[in-house]
């Protein structure tokens, strides 16, 4: 019983990473209706910027805020430069664009900061949290930040004019245009916010997985899985999905014989697919009703 409890706790701790990433994924999905395959690389790049600032002697929270602002601007620039011109190109062409973006960012980061593993500091320290060996203060802090972020997003989308405009632009672009919403800039704003949330995720994850250009590969896969499991239309679902995937992964590794580290990912994914087969729009997603 204690083993189970410990594993669940450890799962929640890693789940916080996935939840963070999934939140960023869902954000951009809300704004542009696509899964951004380059999301992880964008977060990685932001984290490198933060690391560079820290190296130059900027205090942590200063670096944090500057990185956030730069990522926000970067996200908007990417949208304006790369995806706005693509405009009405087919969806699959957009996906190819994400893959191109992935390759470019990964390669540029590798050339600028090379591929050696770097330490990234945590603002919460890494002593045991409340005397428990399983969760460190950093992981507890990560869970806290994720939940606060979720709350802020909820308020933003529910109670501000611009949040409402963004939702309208994503749901009904044409009607939104008719009532005077600048849908094109709403999409750009969505990119900016997704990049900023991604940078927070990156800076929280980096102390755990260490900073290097490929650090997001695995995390992004779990982040996607978490977002899809929770239902892509629901930020709350994404966070719950993140924790669930973390717990799944740990329990599968512990209790199913013959599952080493190698098979953890396939098993976690297989479980998710099973859930999806039963509930095709994710746990908290809403079914899309098609008009024929």
């Amino acid at each position: 019983m204690e083993l189970l409890l410990n594993q669940v706790l450890a799962g929640i701790a890693t789940g916080a990473i996935y939840a963070c990433m999934a939140l960023a994924v869902v954000m951009i999905y809300q704004a542009i209706d696509h899964l951004n395959f380059a999301q992880g690389e964008m977060a990685m790049f932001s984290t490198f910027i933060a690391w560079q600032l820290l190296q130059w002697g900027v205090p942590y929270w200063g670096a944090f805020v500057i990185t956030l602002a730069l990522s926000f601007a970067g996200g908007i620039v990417i949208e304006r430069a790369l995806f706005k011109p693509l405009g009405n190109a087919p969806v699959l062409t957009h996906v190819a664009g994400f893959i191109a973006l992935f390759a470019i960012i990964n390669s540029v980061a590798g050339l600028t900061w090379d591929f050696t593993i770097k330490q990234f500091p945590s603002p919460f320290g890494s002593s045991p949290f409340l005397g428990s060996q399983l969760i460190s203060t950093h992981q507890a802090g990560m869970i806290g930040v994720t939940l606060v972020l979720l709350l802020l997003l909820y308020f933003f989308f529910q109670f501000t004019r611009i949040g409402l405009a963004m939702r309208a632009a994503a749901a009904q672009p044409e009607s939104a245009r008719l009532v005077g919403i600048n849908t094109s800039w709403m999409i750009a704003l969505g990119w900016g916010m997704a990049a900023a949330i991604g940078s927070i995720a990156g800076m929280l994850i980096a102390p755990v997985v260490f900073l290097e250009p490929n650090m997001m590969g695995g995390v992004l896969i779990y982040g996607f899985a978490a977002a899809v499991l929770g239902g892509l239309s629901s930020p709350f679902g994404a966070v719950v999905g993140g924790f669930l995937v973390g717990i799944f992964e740990n329990l599968a590794g512990t209790y199913i014989p013959g599952v080493g580290n190698e098979l953890k990912l396939p098993i976690a994914l297989a479980l998710i697919v099973t859930v999806l087969v039963v509930k095709p729009t994710g746990l908290f997603g809403r079914a899309i009703v098609k008009r024929v």
Binding site: R167, A170, A171, Q172, S175, S233, R286, K290, R291
Partner: peptide, 8 residues
């Protein structure tokens, strides 16, 4: 999130 979104 809104009901409108469902008619995509």
């Amino acid at each position: 999130m809104s009901a409108l979104q469902e008619i995509v």
